[in-house]
Amino acid sequence: MRIIINREKCIGAGNCVMSAPAVFTQDDDEGLVIVLDPNPSDDLADAVAEAMELCPGKVISTE
């Protein structure tokens, strides 16, 4: 699994950090998403799926 984000659309709601803190964080300047782990292991698949579903800006996708 590879994480792809569209940072320009991010609104910094922080839901991805709540769902998958090992994969996502936010920068200090604008609160926008930063990917910590672009290739998360399979045991994080559920957390990443939740982050994708809850993201209000539809910023996260995987391939």
């Binding site: 609104i11 910094g12 709601a13 922080g14 950090v17 709540m18 803190p21 964080t25 936010q26 200090d28 300047d29 604008e30 609160g31 926008l32």
Partner: peptide, 14 residues
């Protein structure tokens, strides 16, 4: 405007 607020309300700051 949003980014002025979101930077202040990150998970880390909360």
């Amino acid at each position: 405007l949003r980014r002025v607020m979101s930077r202040e309300l990150t998970v880390k700051r909360v």
